[in-house]
Design a protein around this nucleic acid. Structure first.
Lengths: 213, 213, 213, 213
DNA sequence: AATGAATGAGCTTTCATTCAT
DNA sequence: GATGAATGAAAGCTCATTCAT
């Protein structure tokens, strides 16, 4: 038994399946879905390509697994907010949680919300999209509660929820892809990108607050 | 020199470089980015693949050229609105133009705003980002004008512009990637995706209108 | 030791070697030779692929074992006819038995009579070709007996046996490979391929009957 | 320009397409269809695998081309016999020509008559099977003429043609695959395999002659 | 300026086989 | 005696790219 083998065994051999997932995640988002090869994943975890197939049927199954994992994580970020009673405060909390999730897991975020392939897969076997729906439901329910609290009068909650989601999604993706940092104004000013995100979010909250009464 | 060659010469030989670009653009939009090969581009313009390399060093250079061109196209969409005197009306027009641009050229849109590689290139040789800046400048200038017209009091124009851009970008990407169509509510309702975009945009306008006075 | 293991032990553990062979045979016949993998064989007998290698050195050894077994099976088809006393009737019976064997075990038939590799193996370690010889011996002995009964006067039994074997082999292989069904006349007529085999065989018998007296 | 390139150019560069065909032919029959890889063909002609695809769409197309070529060759062997007026003499000539074709081109013969894949391909786009049909038509026409000359009374020409074809095919394949040489008697006797073929064919002719009047 | 010909590198996937346990 | 885990080698095929002409 040589050193390499022994070394490998140390590194959590039993959750190789998860290791594959993490490697795939980082590669998918670094290089894109099409550009990520099974070979590359295998290389990253220092195993042979054939080994991947012992744990996942094919490339799709890997994406699929990541998709599920990602949504569970996102929803779990929201669940913390269940005990925030004031709906608008909860809505703000959700926004912050969403941003936090996106910035802490940019690769997962892209997988969930910007890559098209996983979604196509969901379209065929749509059992696991519940998570995606649930996330949106949590949002629109909160918007509805905000209305009861005097916010957003004259708006259809579903439509407004779409708009809110779009804004948050836009902020996150522009940041993740680096576009936020490339606009001249941002480059010129001396605030950090994260601060830019924060103040942008605060500006958006300010916008929403105008919708009260 | 046979007929085929002569025929080709007629077709403004000197802007073959541009013809390549248009072919690439249309293929990107038709088949997607990864699915477009140099061969396919060559076939479309009825030249040999090797000819492409006389005009562009490699595939990346084509992508970068499209990047530049895409921004020019976007800005041109905006410039039409110069003669709209009322700034808020112009702002709305810009929103509509942005959406139209995104939906008509989804892969170009992705190229400009979601793909990271072209942006990295910009980061190294940032001569061509002017266009990107200009687009944002047009937006923030309009927002500033709106303030003079009584809108958006108490907001920093730059920050609000970021938020507005984010919302538009979020709407467009969620639509392009197909996520809009996958949320349960959208599936259940009987309106089309394009209508969903339109009403979402209108809802956003409604939001902005609340910021007046 | 769980139930599964105990269960398996019941199934005559000692002739696992034979079980492997039967699984391989059935898979060869079902899916074809190239499409049969060690994995598939292992799955069929509900053992791990590695187990196969405890009983057979490699895939070739399985093929060779089947080669031997196939010939035994063919000869056993013939031995049933030992109590047919009239030699020409026995000869006809052999023909029918040969066809039946070939059509019921097409891939074994191909293994025995059209694949060259197993034969090459025989050439090197020719201990196991006895069976092949025996099959031909049974034929030529029967032809000789037919001569004593007034058939085939003026023919050398060995040579005629070759011709008879060739005809049977030709019919079987043309049928198995699907060539019989592709000749225009067969396509045009409304009889089934099996009927075509039967009437072709009867025609051949008719030919042989002309060799009497 | 190095030596290797120059060397290659000498070797009939222009009919590389044919070179591929010949390489494929020899490999298909040496190793079998499934076991022959594009890589192997490429190696044999000392080109890169990708080059093959410049000349043939895929593996099937290569087989297809060989199939067509083979049948043309076979039919051309028969056409020489057009001026043999006596039908039974012509029939004998066809038999000899068939054997000659098979023994001189064993690889093509196997491709045409023992491999199943090319036939499957023919089944889908059956335009080019004409050749195969024509070959059989030539045979059955000759058999019919033999009847007019007093042979084969009481036989249906089509059925008898099948039997004759089967016998010839059986003789040829048993010889080509080496089975003829493995039967004990053949090994024991001191005649060559080719002689065995010849005398076997003569024996068959003798059989057919018994069918006269 | 244009291209036909060629290729190296890459892809996903399957499989026979090995070996430590 | 049996196997789970792993892999090297190979398959068919595609593509960006090069280069002599």
């Amino acid at each position: 038994m040589n050193m390499g083998v022994a070394e490998r065994k140390e590194r959590h051999k039993e959750d190789l399946k998860n290791e594959i997932l993490q490697a795939a995640k980082s590669l998918f988002t670094e290089k894109g879905f099409e550009a990520t090869s099974i070979r590359a994943i295998a290389e990253k975890i220092e195993y042979s390509p054939a080994t991947i197939y012992l744990y996942y049927k094919d490339k799709n199954e890997i994406v699929h697994a990541l998709h599920r994992e990602g949504f569970k994580l996102l929803v779990s970020h929201f669940e913390v907010l269940n005990n925030v009673s004031h709906p608008f405060e909860r809505l703000k909390g959700m926004g912050r949680a969403y941003i936090q999730f996106a910035l802490q897991n940019p690769d997962i975020y892209k997988l969930l919300f910007t890559m098209e392939e996983p979604l196509k897969h969901v379209a065929t076997c749509f059992e696991d999209w519940d998570e995606g729906d649930r996330a949106f439901d949590i949002l629109s329910k909160t918007v509805t509660e905000c209305q009861s609290a005097g916010y957003f009068q004259g708006f259809e909650p579903i439509k407004l929820s779409f708009v809110i989601w779009s804004t948050m999604h836009g902020l996150c993706t522009l940041h993740i892809t680096g576009h936020l940092g490339h606009v001249g104004v941002a480059r010129a000013s001396d605030i950090s990108l994260d601060q830019l995100m924060t103040t942008s979010f605060e500006t958006f909250v300010q916008v929403l607050e105008h919708l009260k009464k």
